[in-house]
Amino acid sequence: MGKPFKVKKGEMIARLDGQERQVLAFVCDELSALLADPVPDPDVPDWARELGLSGVGESRPTPQDPVIARLLPDAYDDPERASEFRRLTESELRATKLAHVAVVRAQVQQDPIIITDDVQAWLAFLADARLMLGTRLGVTEDDELVPTNDPEHNLYLYLGYLQQTLVEELIGG
């Protein structure tokens, strides 16, 4: 099996077969659904929501879902400061992450997949996808990184392989 990412004539190319593309599209869709904003507050007028002001005035506690809490972590130890910061920044962070996923989702349908200008989106997507799966799987640092019978665990390993090879191609092994 050749490397999944390769610099060729100054372009970063992703070399993925049909099944790999399908799997990545599936992961993209799952991550998008997860990152989609929660049910909007009916008290917030549409114009304010469009301006990204949807969170103004309400407190934003740490998300209950551990996967979301890991994707959108608290920026302060202090719960009050964390909530305040989340109120001001969480929507934008969600939007940035969703934009990364959208870039990858569109590109896995192309042939060839030239990701030169979108390397940051790919890296962020791979990191977020691994956080989603790894948190769900309860991964620890002592886990052995070998394939098992669990397809989700194997998908987690595969995404790690993609992340590793892309980073190596960018900064050398």
Binding site: P73, D74, A75, Y76, D77, T89, L93, A124, A127, D128
Partner: peptide
């Protein structure tokens, strides 16, 4: 520092400010 922490979160790293 808040901008840096947010950037880390965009990359999937867990960062805090203090």
């Amino acid at each position: 520092m808040e901008r840096d922490a947010t950037a880390m979160h965009e990359y999937g790293l867990w960062a805090t400010v203090q």
